[in-house]
Computed example of a mutant assay.
Amino acid sequence: MESSVQHFPVTHKECSVVIKGNKTDMVISGYDDHFLVIATQIGSMGTILHARFSMMYSAFVARKDESLSIHPTFNVSVIFGKRDEPMLVACARQLIEHISTSGSSKPLVLSLGLQDHSSETLRGVVSAVTANRVW
């Protein structure tokens, strides 16, 4: 009898890093329609955020010249968890900006189960995710 090893059908990376003395486990996955990033120091999902990128078009008319300008917009919302933590929203925004500048327009679902929400911790998360990105 032959055995076949099936690989997980979703592109993903797993890593562990130490951020401010706390072991941080991460899973970064690229689905057909979303990216999923889970970063936890507490062994659970924590706050879950959704971030997306879109282009906003605006026309500018000045005398006889007419131009069209394109402005990127980023929308971040908390799905579950702490809604009063602006640093978590900032982390999701930084990650969706990284995703969009690399040419992808897929939205991001981000789960952050962290010991603290300091800027240093969140910079460490962004750094580790971008170093192990799947986009």
Results as ranks from 00 to 15, higher is better:
S69Y: 09
L110I: 03
V37R: 10
K64H: 05
L68E: 06
T73Y: 10
E14W: 07
M26P: 04
K64Y: 04
R52P: 00
A39L: 13
H12T: 03
E14H: 12
Q94M: 06
L68T: 09
I42D: 15
T40E: 14
S77V: 15
G21N: 07
V78G: 08
Y31H: 10
G46E: 12
D25N: 06
T11K: 14
S54P: 02
F60M: 04
I70T: 07
P107C: 00
F60D: 08
A92Y: 03
S77D: 14
F80V: 14
C91Q: 06
H71F: 05
R63N: 11
M56I: 07
V61S: 03
I38P: 09
V61A: 04
H34N: 13
M45S: 14
G103T: 01
S54A: 09
H98Y: 03
T101F: 02
K23V: 05
T11D: 04
S100P: 01
D32E: 15
T73D: 06
V37Y: 10
F53G: 02
G81Y: 12
M55Y: 02
S77M: 13
Y31R: 10
H98K: 04
K64F: 06
V18N: 10
T24G: 06
T101H: 05
S69M: 14
L49I: 11
I99R: 01
S77W: 02
C91G: 01
F53A: 01
Y57H: 07
S100Y: 01
I79S: 12
Y31W: 13
S104P: 00
F53I: 01
M56W: 06
V89S: 09
Y57G: 00
R52S: 12
M87K: 10
L36M: 13
T11P: 12
A92W: 02
S16G: 09
P72S: 04
P72C: 11
R52L: 11
R63P: 00
I42L: 15
T47H: 10
T73P: 01
K23C: 08
V109E: 01
T40R: 04
I96M: 06
S29T: 12
G81W: 12
D65M: 08
I99L: 00
I79P: 08
T24M: 05
F60V: 03
H98M: 00
I79Q: 12
K23T: 12
K82C: 11
K64Q: 04
V76R: 13
R93M: 02
F53C: 03
S102M: 04
L36T: 14
P107A: 04
D32M: 13
S69H: 05
Q41D: 13
P86S: 10
F35T: 09
T24F: 11
K82N: 14
Q94I: 01
F35K: 14
V61E: 07
F53E: 05
F35D: 12
L112E: 02
E97M: 07
H34A: 09
T101E: 03
R63I: 06
F74Y: 15
C15D: 09
L112Q: 02
N75K: 13
V27L: 12
P107R: 08
Q41Y: 15
I70K: 05
I70V: 07
H34F: 13
D33S: 15
V37C: 11
P107D: 03
N22Q: 10
L49R: 08
S54M: 06
S44W: 12
K13E: 07
Q94R: 11
I48L: 14
R93F: 00
A90R: 03
R93W: 02
E85V: 13
G81K: 15
K23Y: 00
G21A: 08
